[in-house]
Every structure is written in C-alpha cells, then in structure tokens.
Design a protein around this nucleic acid. Structure first.
Lengths: 194, 194, 194, 194
DNA sequence: GATGAATGAGGATTCATTCAT
DNA sequence: GATGAATGAATCCTCATTCAT
C-alpha cells in the first residue's frame, strides 16, 4: 500500500539524515539506500525538505502525545520529571534517527524556512513542560532552591536528548533502564553519599 | 602582521561555521563577513577544509594544555573532575565557536577525510581522561558504584559540552559559576536532601 | 467509442497547450484536466509530440479543405481575399486552441523534428494562396500598386491570425462579424482608390 | 567593465530566447552562445528568470520613454498614431529580440510570477495610450465611427508588434519605411473618407 | 482502459576553487 | 593582498515515458 512504502522510505531517509546530517545527505544517497533512483523519490515526496518535515512531524506528534499524557496525569513534580525522562528515552528508542535529526538540525531548519516554524514552537512547548515542572518542584520543596532554574532546565533537557547521538536501539540497556540510571544521576548525583 | 590577519579571519570563519554549520556555510559567506571577496580567502588559506582544520586544531591544542596540567597535578578523583569541568567551561567561554563546531561536526569530518584523524584521537583521549578519573573515583569510594560507568562518562561529558550550543560569552554567569552549578548538580543531584 | 474518447482527450490537450504553451505543459497537467493519471494517456497516444501532431494535423486538414474550396471557386481577387479571411475567422472560432498552438509553436516544432515538416509546407502553401491572390489583385488593378507586396502579405496574414491570441468562442461578435470589420479595415486600406 | 559584459551577455541571451522561446532555451545554450560554461552565467545573473526580466525591463523602459515623449507632444490623433507606430518600429529595429520575447512570453511570465507584474501593467498602459488616441480620433471625426473600437485597437496593436516575429534588423526596408507603409495600409483603412 | 511505481535523461542552480591582472 | 571572472563537478528537481498489475 502507498502508506507503507512511504513509511519505509521515510525510515531509510531518517537513518541517512541522522548519520550524515541533513545538508550533507544527498537525495541520491537516500535513493541508493532505498534501492531506487534519485528521481523516483519525487514520486513519493515533493522535496528533500518535505522528507525531513514529515520525519520530524511524525516524531513530534508522537512525543507530544506521550508528554501530554504524563502532564495530564496529575503527578507530583518529581514523578512528573521521572515520567518525562522515561518517556523521552522511549522516544529515543523508537525514533532514534528522528531525535538525532531534531537535535542537530532543528535550529538550522527553523530559521531557514517558515515551514519549520513548528520546530520553534516545539522548543517553547518543551521549555514550558520541563521548566514548569521544575518550578513546581522547587516551590514544593522537592528540588533544590540554590540553583539557577534555567541552568537546571538546560542541564536536564540536554542531558536526556543528547543521548540520541550515541544511543542505538537494541543496545545493552533498555530505554527504561537507561532512564532509571539517568534519573538516579540527575536527581541524586554521582557522588557517593556519606 | 600576517599572523594577526589570519587569526582574525579564522575567528570570523569560526563564528559563521558555528552559526550555520560547516557544510551549510559557503566560502562567500565567510568572505562577506570578513569584508573581502571569496577568491581572496585563498591567498590566506588553502581551502575551506584547511580553515576548520586550523580552528579545531588551535582549540584542541589549548584544551589539551589545560587538561594535561590538571591531570598532571596529582589531585584526587573528585577534585580532578571538578578541575576538568571548570577548565572545560573556561574553554567554552574562550573558544565557544570552535567548541560548537567540534560538537556538531567532529564525527562527520573524521569520517570524511584522514586529515581529520586527530578528531578521533581526541575522542579517545577524552574518554581516557574522564573514564580513568571516574574509575579511579569508584575504586576510591568517592563515586557511586551502582551505576554503569560508561553511562556515567557519557552523562558527565555531554552535560558539559552540550552547553556550548547555548552558551554565549558575556552572559549572566561566568564560566566558573556555571561550572560550580553544573558540578553541584552532577555530583549531588537536583533533588533536595532531607 | 474509441474515437470519441481520443477526440475529447485531444480537445482537452489542445486547451492546455494553448493556455500554457507546448513546452511548458506537462503530460500530467493534461491528464489532470482529463481526469486520469499521466501514464494512462499513453494508452491512447504514443507521446506528447503525437498529441500536438494530431491536433495540428486535424486543424490544418480542415483549414485546407476550406481554403481549397475558396481557391477553386474562381472568384475575383478581392472576393477571394474576403472569402479567405472569413474562412480563417471561422476556423479560429472552431479550432481556436489549435490555431493558437499553431501560431506560437509551429516554427519551433518544425525546426525540431522532421515529423513536423508539414508545418513548413503549410507555411509555404499559405504564402502561395495569399500572395498569389494579392499579386493577381495588383495586376487586375484591384489592389494598390505602391506597396511592397511581401509586406502587404505579412500584414494581411498576421492581422488575421494574431486574432487567435485573444479570440474566445462565444464572444460578443460572431466570426463573420469580426471578419467583416477586419476586411473593412484591411481592404479599404489596400484597395485602390477611385 | 562589469556593465559592458552584462550587456553583451544579455544581448546574447535575448537572441537565443527570441529564437527558441524562453522555456525551450537552456541556460547551457545561452552559455554556449556566449562562449562560457553554464555555471559561469551565475556570476553575472541570479537566474535565468533574472535574465529575461532585465531584458524586458530595459526594453520597456526605453519604449515608454519614446511613447511618453510622443504622448506629451500634443499632436492630433492621427499624428499621434503615426508617431507611435513609427516609434514602435524603431524599437522593433533596436530591440527586436526583446520585442519578440515580449510578444511570445509576456502573458505566460506575468501569470507565473509576481516579479513580472510589470508586464501586466505595461499591457494596461499600452491599451490606455492606443485606445485613448483612437477614441479621441473618433470623437474628432478623424477616424471611422462604424467600427468596434476595441477591435480596431487590437488590429492596430497586433499588426505592428507581430512584425517583430519576422523583422530582422538590416533588412531591405528601414524601420521608418516599414512604418510608412504600415501606416498607409492601416490609416487609409480606418481614416474617415471625405 | 487505467493505476501506481519507477526510470533516466536532462535542466537550473550552487559553490569551492583557480588564476590572470 | 585583493579582485573579477571563470571553471566544473555536484546537487536538487522535473518530466516524458514505460510497464507490471
């Protein structure tokens, strides 16, 4: 069916984009990886840009579905952070190529074409979700009060998402296990308590 | 003097590379930013590749000078980590463009041309410095023993370097202050102790 | 019936060719206008070229049938010109798309492929019909003698055919009425004064 | 000098566009005719579109300079028509390629890109200049009253401009001589008989 | 008769690089 | 040291055409 083929092609394209970077990837490389000629891709997609667009949109849609479920669950701040981190690692597991692309190219794409305006929106929505939870946690006395909250936000956010650059699905640890260890480090630190 | 001009041009180039990505930056954009024509750059540099090369080499040379001094100082594991992190934020402050380029392009460049083999070396040398210290700390009972050490390494490493993507010199916090807060989070976590 | 479908498709194609130009028209645009997919057209026609070919051939065949009848009628030069002009406007009315295509593309197509040699033939045959009649009129003292006859020929010819570029069937004036007015302008100019 | 080279290249491009049509002309053909490689043209011009744009703009600017001088001269309707026609043939003589391009491509270009909006403007301005003069002539009793004035307008306009499709500079007749004969044909047709 | 998917030959455009002046 | 002009390879994309189903 049409949709299946598109999906396969997008998965292939995402892999190549993630490995080489969007700009450095040629349409021909994608086509080679898909076993067709470069021109043939244009039967399925309007442009190279349309391909990343679809890849990123699909990923963000799924991500927000997960995040929204967490945020709507009425958990405490610490539990919310735990759930968001776990959900994030699950997304990295399922969409690792899309996540890597998002990490490397989002800024560049966003200020290159209005079509990618939703990437800037996503950035803002992220900030609201994480920052809001952190602030709530500080107010509730669950998180430390002596830290710059924006620094903390960036620390937590980047720490999680950067993992997409080295994580490969099927690796030693499951996403849940990685999430558990990351959370342990972020929440309690790596220094041994006395 | 000849050397000064080169230095200015490299600083300009680094800024543009960092802002737009190496591939997406055209030689003409660099020339524009430097107030000359594209062809004129070739009086100073052999190629676009030679420019990134010099930028990254200069940065890494300085970085290793700092790291080596720390590693040779005979500090304990925790103090070594603290010193490496502080040194890293100082480099981000002084060479933020070069650091950003290194973060975004190192893998890609290393794959692409043997000339950039030293980037892969640097990666390995990093791993040795950080991982070694962490292992020493675990052995000494300074760091937790219940964590996957490679995960911890990546966590600490990424946590620091990713900052280059948003850090701008002259910002609210000094590099030392940022280092202090990061270390506090990494070592002790963000959760409030009871 | 097979022939009817072909005819409809050709009419559609002619409309699109006339509106956008032969080169600028894609097979897909024709197919869209006909409510089918691009590939499906190839069941009916061998190629895009074959389509224009058939469109132009059909038009020219009909045109020559009309012209030949006029030329065989043994009219005087003035009456022959009147009849040719009237016949021409009738063709513009019935085949306005084909006429527009002929006007815009004939030279280009004739240069490009021997298959369109008949377009150059048509040009020569036109010249013979009109020029011959004009020369006869000059000799008979019906038309002015002080004009360059080739210039006159082009004037009359262009004057008529260029109308295809703006004429739309079903407009205010019937083709006969337009012919009458055009003839009035043209003839009272080139006709010898008393 | 820079401007001279551009001018030469534009003249070359205009010739090729006129001969083959804008769409059917490849950038390589222009480059071949100019004795350079296709890519080299882009040092001088931003795009193929920019080339036609400049060609048409230069032509129209000159044309309107001539027309405006005529229209401002305060001549009677008949003399105005004579002057406009003569001016037009002079433009055809000097810019025959640009005129041919304008004739064949104006409509197509105008509704393809807003950049060519000035072509539609030109069309309207033409209509005002010619139609206005004709109406004045009808009112003054200089031109016939029994003709559809819009038909007359198209007749005069097309009759003149279509000449660009066959006129080659340096031909048997000077532009002034052609204008004289055309006017003789046209005027003695539409002028009121005594 | 028609569809969906692909082919493959261009075509416009970009850009690092060269080099005479 | 810098400029202007050009090169040529690579890139994205278009489109007529084919063909199995």
């Amino acid at each position: 069916m049409r949709e299946e083929r598109r999906g396969e092609l997008l998965a292939t394209a995402a892999e190549v984009f993630a490995a080489q970077g969007y700009n450095a990837t040629t349409v021909r490389q994608i086509a080679d990886a898909a076993g067709m000629l470069a021109g043939s891709l244009y039967y399925h997609f309007a442009s190279k840009e349309a391909m990343v667009d679809e890849i990123l949109t699909a990923f963000l849609d799924e991500l927000w579905a997960g995040y929204d479920a967490v945020l709507a669950a009425g958990l405490g701040p610490r539990e919310t952070i735990e759930a968001l981190v776990t959900e994030s690692f699950r997304e990295i597991d399922r969409h690792h190529a899309a996540v890597a692309i998002y990490q490397k190219e989002a800024r560049h794409l966003a200020d290159r074409h209005p079509r990618f305006g939703y990437l800037a929106d996503a950035r803002r929505r992220f900030a609201r979700a994480w920052l809001g939870t952190l602030e709530r946690g500080v107010a509730d006395g669950v998180f430390r009060t002596d830290l710059d909250i924006r620094l903390t936000y960036r620390f937590v956010r980047d720490t999680v998402w950067v993992a997409a650059s080295w994580y490969r699905p099927g690796a030693r640890h499951s996403p849940e296990e990685i999430a558990r260890q990351y959370l342990s480090m972020v929440l309690d630190g790596i220094a041994l308590r006395d």
